[in-house]
Amino acid sequence: MKALLALLILMSMSAFAKEPFTDKDLHQALSKNESGIIYLWSPFMPLSVIGREEIIEVAQNLNLQLILVVDPLATQTETPDPLMMSRDLMKFGVLDHYPAIALYSEGKLVKDVIIHGYEQKQTLSELINSYLNGKNL
């Protein structure tokens, strides 16, 4: 019985073990030529955690792809979100504050756009829409 329990626990843990989101994954996503949002959150930053739920709704409403990635220091969360291990995103500056939102369109990251810090849904929708439509806010 104990062995079964241990196995179940191990299986459960492996289900949520963090896989990395690498440059390869990023470029794969970009290559689809879709528009989308990359949302980086950290379980150690409560507002980014709250924002994780809200960005799902925002992306759905805007009909955008959504990539959820998690703080590379968070080895275990009860989400399937991969660890942020894309060096291109790191160099882009997403790790400087959580949450961080990067946008992509037409096969590339929207230049110089990172939305750092929690924003309410309405504001976020407007910001994302504007940036993806090329408006220099």
Partner: peptide
């Protein structure tokens, strides 16, 4: 400031590893 990746870990970051990469 986040630094440049540690190049010695370059390959590791591209493969599956269950812990955070030293690149960050």
């Amino acid at each position: 400031v986040y630094g440049e990746p540690v190049e010695a870990k370059e390959d590791a970051a591209e493969n599956y590893i269950p812990i955070p990469s030293d690149s960050f």
